[in-house]
Simulated assay, not measured.
Amino acid sequence: MIIVLGVGNSLHGDDGAGPAVAAGVAALGLPGIAAYDCGTAPENFTGVVRRAGPDLLVIVDAAEMGLPTGSVRRIPLERICDTAIGTHMLALSHLVRFLADAAGEIVVVGVQPACMGDREGLSAAVERGVLEVVRCVREGDVGRIEVMG
């Protein structure tokens, strides 16, 4: 089983990348894949993850990685703190540590934002990044997403 947690605030522009990925994956309706829009409180979904015990947990969030807008990267777990990731309450590094024993593998995916101000909707480049992540989940190949250098 695969679980996707989309983290972010859809009312803050490109910070809605994670929720957009969750919505895109959920719309696929694929067996064995569940997706949740965690908003800014991914810690509220730890029980769901623990009960399911997924083989793969994919956490998606907007992340300042110093890359062109819409770039998608897998963020090594030890480098989560190196990115300006998230506007949510609990740091993703704490969430990942808390869930380390609840999933076979945890992958954090960042999408480079352009604007995370008070506005709804994603920039075109971030929308393309979101579609790339959804495609990789659909094809069961998040491993092909480039690792952040």
Results as ranks from 00 to 15, higher is better:
148 M>C: 11
40 T>Y: 06
13 G>C: 10
103 A>K: 10
14 D>V: 04
38 C>Q: 02
17 A>D: 11
105 E>R: 08
30 L>K: 10
77 L>Q: 02
72 V>N: 00
149 G>H: 12
25 V>H: 00
23 A>S: 05
42 P>H: 04
19 P>W: 10
132 E>S: 10
97 R>D: 09
24 G>Y: 10
18 G>N: 06
146 E>R: 11
22 A>E: 04
103 A>G: 08
36 Y>A: 15
94 H>E: 09
57 L>E: 02
106 I>Y: 05
41 A>I: 13
5 L>T: 04
69 T>C: 10
65 M>R: 11
25 V>G: 01
111 V>I: 15
99 L>E: 07
95 L>E: 00
52 A>I: 09
144 R>Y: 08
41 A>Q: 14
118 D>I: 11
83 T>H: 05
116 M>K: 03
112 Q>P: 05
43 E>F: 12
27 A>V: 14
11 L>A: 13
74 R>Y: 01
55 D>K: 15
67 L>R: 09
26 A>W: 07
132 E>T: 14
17 A>Q: 08
103 A>P: 09
91 A>R: 06
44 N>D: 14
127 E>D: 13
8 G>C: 12
89 M>Q: 13
102 A>W: 10
31 P>N: 03
6 G>H: 14
136 C>N: 07
72 V>A: 00
59 I>F: 12
99 L>Y: 07
98 F>I: 01
9 N>V: 11
116 M>A: 08
130 V>L: 05
48 V>I: 07
56 L>D: 07
97 R>I: 01
97 R>H: 08
142 V>L: 13
71 S>L: 06
41 A>G: 12
111 V>L: 12
90 L>V: 15
97 R>C: 06
99 L>D: 05
38 C>P: 03
138 R>D: 02
55 D>N: 15
60 V>K: 06
136 C>A: 14
95 L>I: 00
48 V>D: 10
139 E>I: 14
65 M>T: 08
95 L>V: 00
139 E>N: 15
51 R>P: 06
109 V>P: 08
124 A>E: 15
4 V>T: 08
119 R>D: 02
123 S>Y: 03
104 G>Y: 10
73 R>K: 13
115 C>P: 00
55 D>F: 08
93 S>M: 00
44 N>S: 15
106 I>N: 04
13 G>R: 02
66 G>F: 03
1 M>T: 08
87 T>Y: 06
64 E>S: 03
60 V>S: 07
32 G>S: 02
122 L>W: 05
139 E>R: 15
12 H>T: 11
125 A>V: 05
14 D>L: 05
102 A>H: 09
146 E>F: 01
100 A>V: 07
129 G>W: 10
27 A>Q: 13
45 F>Y: 15
15 D>G: 08
39 G>W: 02
98 F>G: 02
68 P>S: 14
28 L>A: 08
69 T>R: 09
109 V>M: 11
73 R>T: 09
124 A>L: 13
